[in-house]
Amino acid sequence: MSTEVKTAEPKESLFSKKNKKLVTDPLSDNNPITIQVLGICSALAITVQVQQAVIMSLAVTFVTFGGNVVISLIRNIIPSRIRIIVQLVIVASLVIIVNEILKAYLPDISEKLSVFVGLIITNCIIMGRLEAFALGNKPWPSFLDGLGNGLGYSWILVVVAVIREILGSGAISFPGIGQIKFLSPEFMASTGYMNNNFIILPPMALVIVGVIIWIQRTRNKSLIESH
């Protein structure tokens, strides 16, 4: 990394204001999921449990900044006509690495994520950032941009997963620890509340993201769409 930085940013400091903005912007005002509408494809189906969501977020963040850095390093030698294929091949190789690591160290989560790890390849966030940013910028800013967008994707995913897991299963789970049922069924039954299985159904993830968008745009009026 240090060699990249030396060549990439001779004058600008490593964490200048502009570079910081690359990371913080995608967290709120330019969030990949709620504002840019990218990467929803593989995001919502795996938010039933927090541990899956965390692992998925890590995988997507890794592929986003990894792909951004690689493409940014070779951006001047990619012929523009075949760039989509080049990008797909690079992203696919990164995803294969992720998939093999998951299969080796976290086989049960890998089983649950099933096809959605493979679908990171066509996750629009990654292709979108490669096209929009990495092809025209140096490696270090591209790295930060990829990291920021990966984290922006991650926090939405984890928030949705927390809501769904608490309301749906009365529990919360972390990778490595497993599921902790802090609300036991007996306790819930005595208060008259039952686990809301409805919220585990796939369509409810969409409704929750819709509500997050609603809250975000109520707080920041400039994001409201006109008809």
Partner: peptide
């Protein structure tokens, strides 16, 4: 207003 466009589309799809 804050739900216009994207937000309402998400909820309808749900």
């Amino acid at each position: 207003a804050p739900l216009r466009g994207l937000g309402i589309t998400f909820i309808i799809t749900g």
